[in-house]
Amino acid sequence: MSPHPTQLQDSEVASTETSSQASPAEVASEAPAREPPPAAEPEDSAEEEDEEEFDIESLRGRGVVLIPAYNEEQCLGEVLDRIRASCPFDILIVDDGSVDSTARVARSHGATVVRHPFNMGYGAALQTGYKFASRRHYEVLVQIDADGQHDPAYIVPLARRILEGHSDACVGSRFLVGEGYIPPLARRAGMVLFGKIASIVTRRRVTDPTSGYQALSRRVFTFFKSDLFPADYPDADVLILLYRAGFHAEEIPVKMQASVTGQSMHGGIIRPLFYVFKMLLSICVTLLREPPDPERIPH
């Protein structure tokens, strides 16, 4: 990780856009790098060699997979098994006051459980995970949904972008691959709108502003422990906040599936409208505030 986060650069975007369908193992090499990607054949083969030589066990104990969960007993077990099979990271479930046996299922699958005394929402659950990871001194945190929407095979590629110092926050974008689950038109329209706004503000192309599949560096999740983190609806405003705080964020392609439970945080009629309103307001006030300095945030 770079000692000082750098601003986002357009050149990085261009390389991201060229990404095609890829296996998870190839994703990291396809993701944008700080320097322009070399085209020469010998260096390509060196990268492939690096992929082959990479020992996944070297990641053990360096990171944590954060799963905010609320009444997810149905599919949580399977998701945890798939995560275990794909990465050696510790797993943390933040049970956001579930009324079913989410916590019991998580414990029986070997995950650490932090249980909220009452339901506080997705953002608060994420922030609890950040506080946990910060106190446990992890180097990287990968957040993933509990409903099986995110393919755990991309955890390692996302984490490697952070651990190898390419960025401070790496977001998995479903639209860079162009396959797998594509959300309904209305939701996609919202994503395009906020993607455009985030792209203009952060001066890079943001294709999936609502993706919750992210890897964060220690500096970022320590920064998010503060009350500056929008714990009510963290979304595109988080990307803007990161940019304003001087962190370097990027996207890499991932595959996503439809939620197994078929439920969405933004379902119904009122909630999407409220979401659009809240997000526009949040983006406006984020831009109007003084740019935060991560080194001077009281925790």
């Binding site: 933040v94 650490t112 459980v113 932090v114 249980r115 909220h116 005394p117 009452f118 506080m120 608060a124 922030q127 609890t128 506080k131 946990f132 106190r135 446990r136 009350d227 714990a231």
Partner: peptide, 23 residues
Amino acid sequence: KNLGQKVALLEASLETPDLVTLD
């Protein structure tokens, strides 16, 4: 929210011995 998070983290540290260093 902050209080709830603190309670959750403390409870986790008490329930799981190897998480004692949490707080």
